[in-house]
């Protein structure tokens, strides 16, 4: 029996089942994706879903005051009688739009700057590096508070640039702008470092030796190889900015009531935490789970690209 098996084994090509040594189900990843999909669906469809109440519902008198979580108000209602669940959903909309928009701007600008400085070096590298370094050295929260604080004054002034006033400049836009500028700095650094190393790779030299022009080397040879890093930066960056926005909102430098944002909800309701803990807890929980999801996915993605790099 064993002999026969041994013979068969020697004759037949040995097929080794490729069982990874540690096969951990990607629970974190699964949870992260599930949570984010839910949140995104909720925020996008909030206006059409029957179970999400209007975000800025007018107070309805004492009858709704600080109801606990239950069938009627899933996450309870706050002291103005507003549905905490609905406000969480609309808060998610604002928080996510701010975080994603500013990271997107940061990625575009940061990647462009990083690739230019990393590839050409020289004076452009020096100039940009000075800006990046000062930006990184400047306390972010003070910069953000300063800009958002002054944005209000700018909005109410009648200063015009190119014939346009600043009435559109809501706090949300101001925060997005600050976050975009703030995220440019680390992304530029990361991309610059990556480009410095990539531009010394032989395939870049090989492309040059075949007569490739500089723009195409940047776009075809270097950019695709920077993207894996950018994807993990994207997820981690959104997570950081979500938390930062909540922090600013908590300090009162974010969207203004009656608009909702998770941080704003926390700061509005924290004085009444004894009477209505749900109004503070649920926004915190939402923030926590969303940041966690982004981090879990970002980690996973980063590791995935790492393995790919190692296999090359």
């Amino acid at each position: 029996m064993t002999d026969a098996a041994a013979t068969a084994a020697t004759i037949a090509p040995v097929i080794v089942n490729e069982v990874p040594r540690r096969r951990r189900p990607p629970l974190g990843m699964a949870f992260g994706i599930l949570w984010l999909v839910t949140i995104i669906l909720l925020t996008v469809l909030a206006d059409f879903l029957p179970f999400v109440r209007g975000a800025t519902q007018a107070p309805r008198g004492a009858s709704n005051y600080a109801f606990g979580p239950g069938v009627d108000f899933w996450f309870g209602s706050d002291r103005l009688g507003r549905d905490v669940f609905a406000r969480c959903v609309y808060g998610a909309r604002i928080s996510l739009i701010i975080a994603v928009t500013s990271i997107a701007i940061g990625l575009v600008v940061g990647t462009a700057l990083g690739m230019l400085t990393g590839y050409f070096r020289g004076w452009i590298d020096r100039v940009v590096s000075i800006f990046v370094d000062s930006l990184l050295a400047f306390p972010a929260i003070i910069l953000a508070a300063l800009v958002v604080g002054r944005a209000g004054a700018l909005r109410e002034s009648d200063i015009q640039v190119l014939g346009l006033g600043f009435t559109w400049l809501s706090n949300a836009w101001a925060i997005t702008a600050v976050f975009a500028v703030l995220s440019v700095a680390p992304i530029t650094r990361i991309v610059r470092a990556q480009t410095l190393s990539l531009s010394q790779r032989e395939y870049v030299l090989a492309a040059r030796s075949l007569g490739a022009r500089t723009p195409r080397i940047l776009v075809r040879e270097i950019l695709p190889n920077v993207v894996p890093v950018l994807v993990s930066v994207l997820f981690t960056g959104v997570a950081i900015l979500l938390a930062a926005e909540a922090g600013l909102a908590f300090l009162g430098y974010s969207v203004e009531p009656p608009q909702a944002s998770w941080g704003l909800m926390v700061t509005e309701n924290r004085e009444f935490i004894d009477e209505a803990w749900w109004a503070t807890l649920f926004p915190c929980l939402m923030l926590f789970l969303t940041v966690l999801s982004f981090n879990l996915i970002g980690d996973r993605v980063a590791r995935k690209f790492d393995i790919r790099e190692a296999a090359l």
């Binding site: 032989e202 395939y203 492309a207 030796s209 075949l210 007569g211 090359l312």
Partner: peptide
């Protein structure tokens, strides 16, 4: 020189593992 590179003179590099773009 770019018009000569590739068309008139070209180079075979030492390490075939790193001289091809991994993503193309």
């Amino acid at each position: 020189m770019r018009d000569l590179w590739g068309a008139e003179m070209s180079m075979i590099f030492q390490d075939p593992m790193t001289s091809l773009n991994p993503l193309m």
